[in-house]
Design a binder for these strands. Sequence first.
DNA 1: GACCAGGTCCTTG
DNA 2: CAAGGACATGGT
Length: 215
Amino acid sequence: MLVSSSAKNAAKAKKIATLLKDRFGEIHWWPGDTDEVMIGAVLTQQTRWENVKQALSLLKERGLCSMTAIYNADSHDIEDAVRCTGFFRVKTKRLKSLAGFVIETCGGVKEMADIPTPALRKGLLGIHGIGEETADSILCYGFFRPSFVIDAYTARIAGCAGITVKKPDLKPLFESVLPKDANVYHQTHAHIVEYAKGWCTKKRCEGCRILALNE
DNA sequence: GACCAGGTCCTTG
DNA sequence: CAAGGACATGGT
């Protein structure tokens, strides 16, 4: 019984990935450099990407779109630029903490590329304000590491597709059915979010029926 | 006006 | 451990 339900979960996860890949093809998400990805990962917490883009533009205009700039900047200047993403004081503190880790602990963004994924993930998770999703986004989109991102949409789609595992087990589930490849993880997560945005809200999820993900 | 957004942390029961 | 709240702005 345990074996067969986990086999079903795996089959459903694989089906989601396959159907959405056919539907969307190649998606280009987070085309920015590593610094920009890290900043965007924090700013997008509980926030639409359209608002994040505005903040990133402001940060760029003001020469604040890098870890060293964030590290050295006056917090008020950061707050002013990221205001449109909401939680702006909290996010400014989180950006400062992240920059502190990058500069002081790692010695810079370039140096982070030499840190093995497990150690880097552990380090990121140790930063106040960086949780699993933000850490995995940074790893996958910023450093091209095969660390699958689970967000609210992924959990929602998985739930309405009939996958029965709890949220903490979704990451290993998807990683077990996909080739261990950062670009595959990148594409799959992007597909899920794009699809969920169109069909799934907190109240109701129509999407799985449309693509017959739950059959 | 109500409700939600590509979360995370803290406090309570 | 689960549930609820705080953080805050902007769009539907």
